[in-house]
Design a binder for these strands. Structure first.
Lengths: 293, 293
DNA sequence: AAGATTACCTGACCTAAGTCAGGTAATCTC
DNA sequence: GAGATTACCTGACTTAGGTCAGGTAATCTT
């Protein structure tokens, strides 16, 4: 990997850390410490204490003390959970809401001041470049791993996939059409973003040198990142490493993004080969088998 | 200002903070705290203690203690300054250098792992987008302020400007040609990045409705940001607010970037009007006088 | 209904990071 | 050469942010 590229990324990280320092210093302003401010913000209007603990990654003792502190200042009320006697819910009081809004306002003001130094076009350019950075960093940190054919997380994805097809196909989609675990003769891949499943894909072996790509699906919150392409590529190299040099797949007229993805990845349309009623279009691609890197 | 643009910027800041958290957690790795690690890094091979204090913004007592700690671990040696008996210099020992290199290696490894999830083209895209973000944020945080005509910081800039012209003009440049403070009948503007002067520009009044732009200069470390344009624009609105509607300036064949800047800002070439031997080209622009925003 | 688990709290303790007030020696300014 | 300033150090203190070991009550599991 190009060393200067690495240095450039690190340099940007250093730069941004420094800039963020300036912004959050300003954002603070109040004499409240960072912890309580962040908590105030995270509570929103009301939130499970348990959820807060998970989300902020805090020790239960520490969170408890933080909440007590905010309660003493009358910014927060901690009330019993209506359905679980053990659990509790933190909610902002009127004063707490005012405080949170003030914090919010201060944070906005910092950004407004920053943008004031730029022309409207430059502001747009900034937003565009930031979105690009975010998109690529999200994509880079999503992990793709092979999982067991009956992996519960992967099956949650497959269910979502089926539900989406049912919504999008005019004729609906029968969940029973999903490939059963015992028929997944190739691999089942699961994509996770920060631990959360956000996509899946599988291939099955049609014959020793032919694989069929199936059930390629990306959660809506992870679309537009280029994850579909990455997942498809991963499936191909995975299959290629096991002797496959021909890939096939079937898809549906309504799945425009998928069709575009296949075409732009070297797939060409062929005559229908399977018997699935949903496979209105069939595609194929040849590629010499090589070991995955 | 567009509210969703503001939210987008804030959202990116939150996103990046979170990502950086992940990166620096990894970067740590060692059981050394963040403070000493950062200090180790900043010392480089050797550095004035005083410089470290300024640069890291640390209390002198705190820094002293940090250094003592590193000295006890044999990572750092603090030796007297050769030319100033009060001052001292911190330098890494052999072990300190190894430790710093190990930190560095760990930080690189984190970035390499991150980039591993992207194709080479995407890596390039990421670097490009990050540079764009950085460029715009730098530009946005540079302040431009009018200063006294004999302001010492502005005059440092003017001296640098003169020195650069002396290097670039085949015939050299006589510093005495710089406009004297008493002749700066318009304004002298100074651009600062994080407090440091990085550019200047002035206008003088030729007649009640005509200004001459002079000595527009950007430090090499702030070039390519679009600061020249911003500074020029600032000079124009400043002059316009004081009744000027005609701008003139003279420049030199060797200053290609400046000539391009003037042309792209509505200046057109006119016959020579002044008597400066360095003004090989003259430009003019009309613009109705309006109050600055 | 017993035993395990979960949700939260309390008290005791700890470290990193920093502030502040003063002190010493060297150096600069006049 | 006196007085101010600078560079650094030491000791005393504070705060934020956190860990850990237990305890209580509610709930889930079998």
């Amino acid at each position: 990997m190009a060393p200067d590229l690495i240095e450039q990324i690190r340099d940007f990280n250093r730069f941004y850390t420094e800039r963020l320092g300036l912004l959050t210093d300003r954002y603070l302003g109040s004499d409240r410490a960072l912890g309580p401010s962040r908590l105030l913000w995270e509570i929103g209007d009301h939130r499970d204490v348990r959820e807060l603990r998970d989300h902020l990654g805090l020790d239960s003792g520490y969170l408890s003390r933080l909440l007590r502190g905010l309660e003493e200042q009358d910014l927060v009320r901690v009330v019993p959970h209506p359905r679980d006697g053990r659990a509790r819910i933190a909610e902002l009081t009127e004063a707490g809401r005012r405080e949170r809004d003030a914090l919010d306002q201060r944070s906005r003001a910092g950004v407004v001041a920053l943008l004031g130094g730029l022309s409207p076009e430059q502001q747009e350019e900034l937003a565009t470049a930031q979105n690009q950075v975010r998109r690529l960093l999200r994509l880079a940190t999503i992990t793709i791993t092979p999982v067991a054919t009956d992996d519960p997380e992967a099956w949650r994805c497959l269910k979502w996939y089926a539900a989406e097809l049912a919504r999008r196909f005019p004729e609906g989609y029968d969940q029973a059409t999903l490939t059963r675990p015992e028929d997944l003769t190739g691999s089942l891949l699961l994509a996770r973003e920060r631990g959360e499943p956000v996509g899946c894909g599988a291939w099955i072996r049609l014959d020793p040198r032919t694989a069929e790509i199936r059930h390629l699906w990306i959660d809506s919150k992870a679309r537009g990142l280029g994850l579909g392409r990455r997942l498809l590529h991963h499936l191909e190299t995975d299959a290629a490493a096991r002797g496959v040099d021909t890939f096939r797949l079937g898809t549906h007229h309504t799945l425009g993004e998928a069709i575009a993805l296949y075409r732009s990845n070297g797939y060409h349309e062929i005559d229908s080969y399977g018997d699935s009623p949903y496979n209105q279009l069939s595609f194929e691609k040849h590629q010499p088998a090589v070991k995955s890197s």
